[in-house]
Design a protein around this nucleic acid. Structure first.
Lengths: 236, 236
DNA sequence: ATGCATTCGTGTAGTATATACACTATTATA
DNA sequence: TATAATAGTGTATATACTACACGAATGCAT
């Protein structure tokens, strides 16, 4: 049954590989970009940390499979998710041929705090620049995912998927500095960030800080949609 | 055997989907961006045009599978190829579950003319803006591939994968105008293209034209490597 | 041989965008 | 009330982008 005459010209019988999805789940925590990892309890790589993932079901879309894994792991439903690509070196799993379709996702830890290490399974958030060795080819996958995340952050207002609904311009700046790994000039940053007209200045200020309180802003999605339709982008 | 306890926490037995590779093969011909398509002779979609593709073998890397298909179809070995991503809607093939990993590739039709329609199988080059209806979800795949190609062309000197080894600046400009779908100012284009220092001015001119002959240039790869290492990009 | 049609090749001025840079204002706390 | 910490603001310079027109070279038709 498997493989027979699929795609027309090829009629020899191929055995089928297993197909999984793996997710690089990013979040912003204490001004650091963090990644959710799971500690494996079975061989191979028992004890190693790995990207959460699992099998694609036979009647399930790839994105649906990724979202299902994501929700099982974090409890969060509507998140930003994007495909990284397929990884399929024949030797990537020592047991049998497994092709994985990798995704990256953003969970907003301010709106949906995900307490990773409290449940039975051993899961934890790691700063992306202090990761333990990863199982399988997950380091490759992560590096690709990080590249894809950074590229997207440069061109689209993804920052607001990470930040609280009300944020200060300094928080916004810190985010870009953290994710892009470069320092930015305060005045130029504010000038540019505001110039797109997609930030609403609120009449509120941060509270509980031991210095002058900063004004809060929120992301104005309608303005961004208008700007995008007009061919605009958003890069700081 | 399939699916058992793979990835640790999941131990139920999954049937495995078939996995294929499909290739969007681009080339430049008569100042037009063209795509190589194959006419299917079997159901489903018999008679329709489709992206060339086929099964991934059990011991074969995904990229190797794509390159094998590519060579079977065009006879060309060393081409630029990049993954588009995985496509896996459960209904995309009416016979059984097939997940495809799509790739796009560039063949240089000046250096390796691929006479598509001469062999037994019915294959042909189509201008990307005059494509026939495509089989399966190949239209989706192609649109994604085109987006990926255009993005890459904006940032990296991919133009030279399409053009003859010796080319005129007008040819180069036409390429960008064709692929990016916008007209460019001649003087500004030349100024900018030359400013990166990755084009070598040759002492040769085009021949056989019924007007003033244009100077020929070639792409200086070492210069590009130096520029790239220094963090530079290439965008016209 | 001459004129025609066609493409090649070139520079400048104006505008917009990006960069560099330092001090006063506000608030909590000691 | 002094201190420590961060917020908030403007200008001058350099760089990059845009718009724009005409003489030079060549094959071809007459």
């Amino acid at each position: 049954m498997p493989g027979t005459e699929i795609e027309g010209r090829y009629s020899y019988q191929y055995p089928h590989p297993a197909v999984t999805v793996d997710c690089a789940i990013f979040g912003l925590d204490e001004d650091k970009l963090k990644l959710l990892l799971i500690q494996r309890d079975l061989e191979p790589f028992a004890g190693s940390w790995a990207l959460p993932g699992g099998f694609v079901r036979m009647d399930e879309d790839l994105e649906a499979a990724a979202r299902r894994e994501l929700e099982e792991e974090t409890g969060v439903r509507k998140v930003f998710i994007e495909q990284v690509g397929a990884f399929g070196k024949p030797s990537r799993d020592p047991r049998e041929r497994v092709i994985t379709v990798a995704w990256w996702a953003i969970v907003n830890l301010y709106e949906h705090p995900v307490k990773a290490d409290t449940d039975a399974r051993n899961a934890a958030w790691f700063p992306v620049d202090e990761l333990p060795p990863l199982a399988f080819d997950h380091r490759d996958i992560l590096d690709t995912a990080l590249g894809s995340l950074r590229g997207k952050v440069r061109r689209e207002p993804l920052a607001f998927e990470f930040l609280p609904r009300k944020f200060t311009l300094t928080q916004l700046q810190r985010f870009y500095e953290t994710v892009l790994g470069e320092t930015l000039d305060k005045r130029n940053f504010r000038k540019k960030a505001l110039s797109y007209g997609i930030l609403s200045e609120l009449k509120e200020y941060e509270i509980g800080v031991a210095h002058r309180a900063a004004r809060l802003y929120s992301f104005d999605k309608p303005s961004w949609n208008r700007l995008r339709k007009a061919g605009g982008s958003f890069s700081v």
